[in-house]
Nucleic acid binder design. Structure first.
Length: 469
RNA sequence: GCUCCCAUCGUCUAGCGGCCUAGGACACCACCCUCUCAAGGUGGCGGCACGGGUUCAAAUCCCGUUGGGAGUGCCA
């Protein structure tokens, strides 16, 4: 019987959680689900200078947001690489004992100097046969054998590396600590990893790691190197330059299913004419061999479009629930006592088709939750520019004093005034809209006016009229 | 420089030798609908990098050119 496939995702906690990492995690997760295998989360926290526990929690939270956590039995971990340090060193010593590795006392400067003299690049294997033992400041290097190393990659096919192009790389630093290349392999072996699915930037590491696997007496895993995500300059997404933090998108009101769906269309596509598909369909159809070979541009505009789609597809009550973080609490732009959940619930269906990000919601309804709206100067200037603007607004106001206060009746009033002046409703409503909402665009006007009530409405019109003079 | 990877509309992709006068999505444009803005509907713009082969037939296979990308750390 075949063994249970074991995938792993091994981020290092050195900053916000990267969307590229999220995609890699999703790939591994889906593959584990498909094969009824295991998704191992391993935090590679061996770089003390850059590690921080807060980032570890960030990774956990972000993964959970994507639906990847220990609530599902396919999830295993998190494991911490630092906990395995002794084993890493032990493995290195084993490699040394069997002659697969050797110590070297050259400093980086020495190596550069030698390289320059030889007119070559990198380390030349100077200490290969010097028979050095361990010692302070000495690094342990892997003795790269002659020949070639072929990496069987599930997305790229077989990739051949001539071993002569691979220098004797470092396993243990001068201070005795293991480097990524080694620790990563030892952990994979220890944790019984059978499939390594990671970003393409690791492809050059694969032959080296494969040699370590073999030297340690194990068959290497199934490799898969997926293309990187790039920015508009076609450069790999970087934390410094680009907006890559999953947390940030979440803060802006990107929905988890939208993010997952969008990420999965980068480098791959579900069957059929729609890219917006349930995660179950993706899980059912995803296949590494059909993953694209070239980098994909992370297009925020398209992400937003996906998000808007998901927002619209939600039942209203769910939409209202999702909006809550932006309506109450620290993020809300109004005073807590001014906010009325009932009023929001009424207008929610009207804003649902108008937002791409949940964070866009407050600015669309804020005029309902304050004494007077903040009037946008440009919108005001434009709306009140026509010579009929003030006059018609006054007529509307006077009619509003006595008319029935329902959306239909209010609309009829405005239409009647418009007819009198031979103006279409589309034009007529502009000054009214600015007076009521402070803006020239927004949800349909008459429903909110009815919600606001007669007194508040008249007050706003008067204030706008006064501003005019 | 060296090693490796890659190449279909602006972008994400479908396409695995004939269903391709290359399909879909985002963006963009136009029209319809409409109280503004959206949403929705209809239509449009737009692509197989180039050159050689192989084949009755190539976006699909091979070679080369060009152009991109990644790596080249005692980071991960």
């Amino acid at each position: 019987m075949a063994q249970t496939p074991r995938y792993r995702f091994a981020p290092s906690p050195t900053g916000y959680f990267h969307v590229g990492g999220a995609r890699t995690a999703l790939y591994n997760w889906i593959l584990a689900l498909q094969s009824n295998g295991v998704f191992v989360l391993r935090i590679e926290d061996t770089d003390d200078s850059r590690n921080n526990p807060q980032w570890t929690q960030g990774i956990l939270d972000a993964l959970a947001w994507l639906g990847i956590d220990n609530k599902d039995s396919h999830f295993e971990g998190p494991f911490f690489q630092s906990a395995n340090a002794a084993l890493h060193v032990e493995s290195a010593e084993k490699l040394f004992a069997q002659g697969a590795a050797y110590y070297c006392d050259l400093s980086s400067e020495d190596i550069q100097k030698r390289a320059k003299e030889l007119g070559k690049q990198g380390y030349d294997g100077y200490s290969r046969d010097r028979g050095l033992g361990p010692g302070e400041g000495r690094v342990l290097r892997f003795r790269v054998p002659e020949g070639a190393t072929i990496v069987q990659d599930q997305v790229r096919g077989s990739v051949e590396f001539d071993n002569s192009t691979i220098e004797d790389f470092v396993l243990l630093r001068g201070n005795g600590s293991p480097v990524f290349l080694l620790a990563n392999v030892v952990d994979d072996i220890t944790q019984g990893i059978t499939h390594v699915v990671r970003a393409e930037e690791h492809l050059p590491n694969a032959p080296k790691q494969q040699m370590i696997w073999r030297a340690l007496g194990h068959e290497p895993p199934n490799w898969a190197h997926v293309p990187v995500l790039v920015n508009e300059q076609r450069k790999k997404l970087s934390k410094r330059r680009d907006k890559v933090a999953v947390e940030q998108y979440r803060e802006e009101g990107i929905l988890s299913p939208a993010m997952k769906n969008y990420l999965m269309t980068l480098g791959w596509a579900p069957t059929g004419d729609s890219e917006i598909v349930p995660f179950e369909k993706i899980t059912a159809e995803f296949d590494l061999s059909s993953v694209n070979h070239s980098p994909a541009f992370f297009d925020i505009v398209k992400l937003h479009s996906f998000n808007a789609d998901y927002i619209r597809a939600m039942p209203v009550d769910e939409f209202i629930r999702e909006c809550e973080p932006w309506l109450v609490g620290a993020k809300a732009p109004w005073q807590a006592q001014d906010y009325d959940a009932k009023v929001f619930a009424e207008i929610a269906p009207l804003v649902q088709t108008r937002v791409q990000l949940l964070q866009d919601v407050p600015s669309m309804v804020d005029f309902l939750f304050c004494d007077l709206p903040t009037i946008d100067d440009a919108a005001f200037a434009k709306a009140f520019a026509p010579e009929w603007a003030s006059a018609t607004l006054i007529e509307i106001r006077d009619a509003f004093k006595t008319c029935e206060f329902t959306p239909d009746a209010l609309k009829a009033v405005v239409e009647a005034v418009g007819e009198k002046h031979s103006l279409k409703l589309g034009k007529m409503q502009a000054p009214l809209r600015v007076a009521i909402t402070g803006r020239s665009v927004g949800p349909p006007l008459f429903e909110p006016i009815a919600m606001l009530g007669r007194d508040a409405t008249l007050k706003r019109i008067d204030v706008a009229l006064a501003k005019k003079v």
